[in-house]
């Protein structure tokens, strides 16, 4: 169990992933579902960025010409997470627009109520 104490960022991100996952599955309200989805995404980004950190490394911006690798943190995860954050925002915006359209027609945010109303309309 030694590593859990050292890798505390990764364990925190795993717990957040679990919370977001639980939110996504159990929440009835659609907006809460998508907040849980956002928490899940940020948890994965925390995991990825924490993997890039190096003790004693500074931000990957070259300071007065030192280009020795041990001075800086690993830039690759930072790049990936930057892309990921903007993907998460655009997907949240798309899903919230979907939620608005659902509310306009069904008047409710509860997924079970929506499913029941849809079935009634079908028959």
């Amino acid at each position: 169990m030694g590593n859990l104490g050292v890798n505390f960022y990764e364990s925190a991100s795993v717990i957040l992933f679990g919370i977001g996952f639980m939110n996504l599955l159990l929440q009835k309200n659609l907006i809460k579902k998508f907040i849980g989805l956002n928490i899940m995404d940020t948890a994965v980004f925390l995991f990825l960025a924490a993997k890039g950190f190096v003790f004693g490394g500074s931000a990957p911006i070259i300071v007065d010409g030192i280009t020795d690798a041990s001075y800086y943190v690993n830039p690759v995860p930072a790049g990936l997470v930057l892309t990921g954050i903007v993907v998460a925002v655009s997907v949240t915006a798309f899903s919230l627009a979907l939620v608005q359209r659902l509310y306009q027609h069904y008047g409710s945010l509860n997924m079970d109520v929506i499913m029941r109303k849809m079935k009634e309309e079908e028959h």
Partner: peptide, 13 residues
């Protein structure tokens, strides 16, 4: 997942 994190390389070395 916590078991996986336990198995992962150390944070920051």
């Amino acid at each position: 997942m916590l078991l996986v994190v336990n198995d992962l390389p150390q944070y920051g070395n």
